[in-house]
Design a protein around this nucleic acid. Structure first.
Lengths: 147, 147
DNA sequence: GTACTCCTTCAAGTAACTTGAGGTTCAAGG
DNA sequence: CCTTGAACCTCAAGTTACTTGAAGGAGTAC
């Protein structure tokens, strides 16, 4: 057992968990974190349990989960009869979304590449060219540059 | 020359450009679009020039450019001495950002894949398992599931 | 006791719209 | 002419996940 009871100020907790202090207050406000006990002067105090919870939240956020998903994951993490299947499903759904976003960004990357390349080919001379990119983009088809 | 002067209601314009009507009002409010002339009854009217401008904006947004970038691109598109080089640079910068985001998402995809896979291996039996994912995630290292 | 950092609350700002409430205008049909 | 229903109007607030700023109090080291 750990006999040391570590107490953190909000700044120390923030540093330990890798988030900002306003973020911690915000998490308290939206009840992701419980209301912190205060010193006589009104300053918030935290312990290792809070650090664990906050770190968990941070990890989930780094995974890209939304606040509402984190809320569910937190509840699952606390329930004694942990439902790993539900956790897996949340992660799977999120993975699907990430892959969807990846696909969109790959398309965007190709379009922008093509755009820049055509700019280079047609407009290497600099300003004042007869660049038709803008006419192209004012029509509802695919964009082009200086074609 | 086109002798037809097409006049659009806000709804018709929205449909033609592929945006929503509140979006058009919003664009007017933030001065991406000029204030529309009104009918006697106060309803907005648009013409083909507006359609061209709005379509241009839509294209830029689909490319992922932010509103402020669209503002610059719009000005470039209107200037008589078009600076294609500046346009290219804006697109190149944006392309770099897209690639950065792609790299991040690829890392995320791998992490989530690994997460889900480990869930499948260790927790195929369903709820009630001795799943350590939550303990892992409350520590500041990399997440795992049911390991 | 004073200097300095860290803490407090509250309000507003960010991006780019969307949603809702409550009311008006327009075009068509009878 | 009158009604009906869709589409329009304005204004305010909601969305996501915080960040930023102002004005002032608490804690600690010298």
């Amino acid at each position: 057992m750990n006999l040391h009871i570590r107490v953190f100020t909000i700044g120390a907790l923030a540093k330990a968990a890798g988030v900002s202090t306003p973020t911690i207050r915000y998490y308290e406000e939206i009840r992701l974190l419980p209301p912190a006990p205060r010193t006589a002067g009104g300053q918030r105090t935290y312990d290792d349990e809070d650090l664990g919870r906050l770190t968990f939240i941070k990890q989930c956020r780094d995974f890209g989960f939304g606040i509402d998903q984190v809320r569910v994951l937190l509840e699952l993490s606390i329930s004694t009869n942990r439902d790993c299947v539900e956790t897996r499903d949340i992660a799977q759904t999120h993975l699907d979304e990430v892959r969807q976003k990846l696909a969109e960004l790959r398309v965007l990357e190709r379009r922008l590449e093509s755009f820049v390349t055509r700019c280079d080919i047609a407009c290497a001379g600099g300003p004042g060219q007869d660049c038709v990119i803008f006419k192209d983009m004012a029509a509802p088809a695919k964009g082009s540059c200086c074609g």
